[in-house]
Design a protein around this nucleic acid. Structure first.
Length: 416
RNA sequence: GGAGGGGUGGCAGAGUGGACGAAUGCGCUGGUCUUGAAAACCAGAGUCGGGGCUUCCUCGACCGUGGGUUCGAAUCCCACCCCCUCCGCCA
């Protein structure tokens, strides 16, 4: 969602930024501007009618208060009501259309968003190949049972993997806390408004599970509930930044992903994730984005995983991000870098849709906050990376020492 | 699942069919007092959207949402949404 006032004065920058996405959204912007013109033509007319009506009504009250006859004036006002209703109806139609068009618009990309995916740096030893996680883990991952019980792309994780997950999450929560992120367990089922506000609707409904009887949706990421935590609130700038580390299961229908990543637990319908989310003032957003990326890298390095950082291409940003970094870990089982985490600067896009503002410390008025999100640990994929990178000649797996104190096993024995 | 109560300004919380958005408290801003701060006292301040001769003026909208009654609705009626309390059930 964009700031109409700013854009009607100078639409060029927004139009050019949107055009970079290559999705035709600059045409939507032009539609928005045309509707805005119509609205502002209609509005003064309606308002003037309302104004005179209001004055007349007040007079009637005074007349009657004095005991005078006001029937003439009442008839007069009643007549003007017809015309006003027509105009108001038309205004409402225009405004509804305008709102819909505005909601369609994606966030204009940041100038720093790359034309194509761009590798910023590679860290750690990559290039190794080996057995993939399914071979290494054997029946610690039970996809057959998952499929029988819930369908394909569901899995049971067992034994040491469970301890590994819990340790991973507990440890990452500790690291996040050290960076000022408050631990949160958010709702997983959310209302439509939360998805609309974060920009997942309207657009990606085919990716989202819906609980029809209760009109709720299963979130694909706790970003949805975390962003909505302060929806409708007017904050004070000194209270910012507000930082949360949310742990939750995530649910994705993966419609349209048929045939892709079908082996193992790389792409499943349900996984657990620790997500970082920040509400910041406008001036802090860019620095916060780098901060979140730095935390993600800190986690990768502490786990000893080889990875690279990618500045994601403008045409692949998703609706809400102005700029996005992915961290891809090297997976020896696939002989490739694959996405493990992702962090986005969504600027004021979600804050506008969710109505999250703050009073600036200096000056008057209110300002929409900026929001950012990033993966701390996507558990399933991190387990894959740890297992495949920790594999030994004999098929056993050595796990990072840091996790030991949080209850993870030091190693997993070779699958039988 | 059964019964009831309620949705009002940043927060808490009054409220009458007409005094032009709304008591009071807290919080906020400015001032007085003070070496400074606190307290006390005085004053100010809602949000959004139009328009303008754009540090200000003006108009409109906004008391959950949408309809209705009325010359006039926070206030009356209807529908919907949401929240809360009690009982039942329950991890």
């Amino acid at each position: 969602m964009l700031d109409l006032k700013a854009i009607r004065e100078d639409p060029a920058p927004a139009r050019e930024a949107l055009a970079r996405r290559g999705d035709g959204s600059e045409a939507v912007l032009d539609r928005v501007l045309a509707l805005d013109v119509r609205r502002r033509a209609l509005l003064p007319e309606v308002e003037e009618l309302r104004s005179t009506r209001k004055a007349a009504s007040r007079q009637i009250g005074e007349q009657q208060g004095r005991g005078d006859d006001a029937s003439e004036a009442i008839a007069e006002v009643r007549r003007s009501g017809e015309r006003m209703k027509e105009l108001e109806a038309e205004l409402r139609r225009v405004e509804e259309e305008l709102d819909r068009a505005v909601a369609e618009l994606p966030n204009p990309p940041d100038p720093g968003a790359a034309p194509q995916d761009t590798v910023l740096r590679e860290v750690g030893r990559s290039g190794a190949t080996g057995r993939d996680h399914l071979e290494l883990l054997g029946d610690l991952v039970d996809l057959e049972a998952g499929a029988r019980v819930a369908g394909s792309r569901f899995a049971y994780l067992k034994g040491p993997l469970v301890l590994l997950e819990l340790a991973l999450v507990r440890w990452a929560m500790e690291v996040a806390g050290g960076h000022g992120f408050e631990p949160v367990i958010p709702p997983v089922l959310v209302r439509e408004e939360a998805l609309y506000g974060t920009g997942f609707l309207p657009d990606t409904e085919q990716q989202i599970y819906r609980v029809a009887d209760d009109d709720l949706y299963l979130s694909g990421t706790s970003e949805v509930a975390l962003a909505s935590l302060h929806a409708g609130q007017l904050l004070d700038e000194p209270d910012l930044p507000l930082r949360y580390a949310g742990f939750s299961p995530c649910f994705r229908r993966e419609a349209g992903a048929a045939g892709r990543d079908t082996r193992g637990i790389f792409r499943v319908h349900q996984f657990d994730k620790l997500e970082l989310f920040s509400f910041v003032s406008v001036s802090e957003a860019v620095a916060e984005h780098e901060r979140i990326l730095a935390i993600e890298e800190e986690l990768m390095q502490a786990l000893g995983l080889p990875y690279r950082v990618v500045n994601i291409a403008v045409d692949d940003l998703g609706k809400s991000a102005a700029k996005k970094y992915d961290i891809e870990a090297w997976l020896p089982g696939q002989g490739a870098y694959r996405e493990l985490t992702s962090c986005s600067n969504t600027t004021d896009y979600q804050a506008r849709r969710l109505d999250i503002r703050y009073r600036p410390a200096e000056g008057k008025g209110t300002v929409h906050a900026h929001t950012l999100n990033g993966t701390a640990v996507a558990v399933g994929r991190t387990i894959i990376a740890l297992v495949e990178n920790g594999q030994q000649e004999d098929g056993s797996i050595v796990l990072p020492e840091v996790l030991g104190q949080w209850g993870a096993p030091a190693r997993i024995e070779a699958a039988s």
